[in-house]
Design a protein around this nucleic acid. Structure first.
Lengths: 220, 220
DNA sequence: GTCTATATGTTGATAGAC
DNA sequence: GTCTATCAACATATAGAC
């Protein structure tokens, strides 16, 4: 009775078209090439098999290193996960705090832009985003709380936008909490199925979802 | 360096309001009380901590049993997970294959009903549904393939409904694949946040999401 | 059917050479 | 910084008593 199910080699994971995303662009330039490569390897492993099913050996093998090498660059496996999830949440928050969102004169334009950008970010970085959404239970309680705080900041930006549109009558009357949650669900859930070699670019999907979001709140 | 993060006792999990759902109703009556209780305990553990972070001890403790007792009722931990995910997928498929969906004369009614029922099922059984959505990587390749087949059957029912509405001009012209996926995302993603002690009953949320789905495909 | 005890293998992390 | 070797802890699953 082997404890682990059949697995893929690091090379197979790296070549899997479903696991292609732009994660290498996310890591801080302050990190060296090796730690950045380890984060990218970890993203693929965590996305494919889950945090707890991934061993430190798996992560290190992705860079052709021995398991001990990981601990030169990261103090623990949990901190590799935390770094990935923290950076992911910080980057997507930056991406929706863009002037085209914050300074939008028209509320409908603001909603269109924030939905489009949030969707496109999740699509472009869908493997990392999948880890950010699905592996939160691997974090310690302290790290989990910090991530929840970042999520609140992002969610508040969406909620404000919906609330503003209802208040200025750009949008129909609606339960703001319910509508905001529905929009976030739409944008986030794509991490389960999106692939970069599919029919839609991240921006095309973003525009499509922005259109759906506007229909959700359209005045009749 | 403890390998496992701080955990909750089985009693704490059973009392957590976020982990209340109707999972005990799902298990076959052919099973005895103990195996059904083990499945319910496992659902809570898998939803709270993930499949791989859950030990056979955790599951058994939830029923006040020793770890060895689990193996009298299930041949392996993976088969506990498979049973949960298989039953979840079969039940939701049954639930959307209801006469009110299959025999609907009006396509808009059919879409309203299928979205409403699919949403309400996921809300009512959100803890089980969370395991069904988030723990697929814990399955063996063979079991995974069987679940994907069940998912296709459900998805096809939604896709047919959207396609019929576009063909009979109940709905606006649209990319059927894209629109269907968006609707499924909306209904499924609620497993990440829904709780039974929140402001909306499963049926209220179902009706709300059905309204959103109809707006997505409304003719202008 | 449930228990205690344990076999067997794996895992996260460290020690110490180079 | 990377390696080999290894530890202590833990997990799944089984054996055998009751």
């Amino acid at each position: 009775m082997p404890r682990r199910q059949a697995r893929f080699t690091p090379d197979e994971l790296a070549a899997d078209p479903r696991l292609q995303d732009h994660s290498p662009e996310l890591w801080s330039a302050d990190l060296g090439e090796v730690p950045r490569g380890l984060l990218t390897s970890a993203v693929r492993c965590f996305a494919a098999n889950g945090f707890h099913a991934t061993t430190t050996r798996d992560i290190a093998e992705g860079m052709g290193l021995s398991p001990a090498a990981l601990y030169v660059h990261f103090p623990s496996k949990e901190l590799v996960l935390y770094e990935i999830i923290r950076v992911g949440h910080e980057r997507v928050l930056e991406y929706v705090r863009h002037p085209s969102v914050l300074d939008a004169a028209d509320t409908a334009d603001r909603l269109r832009t924030i939905i489009s950008r949030y969707t496109a970010w999740h699509a472009r970085h869908h493997v990392t985003a999948r880890v950010c959404q699905m592996e939160l239970t691997g974090l310690t309680a302290e790290h989990y709380d910090q991530i929840i705080e970042l999520r609140h900041q992002t969610n508040d930006l969406f909620r404000e936008t919906v609330a503003r549109g209802v208040a200025d009558e750009s949008f129909a009357q609606a339960n703001i909490t319910q509508v905001t949650r529905a929009m976030l669900s739409l944008c986030i859930d794509l991490v389960r199925w999106y692939r970069l070699d599919g029919p839609d670019t991240p921006e095309q999907l973003g525009d499509f979802y922005a259109g759906l979001a506007l229909k959700m709140v359209a005045r009749t």
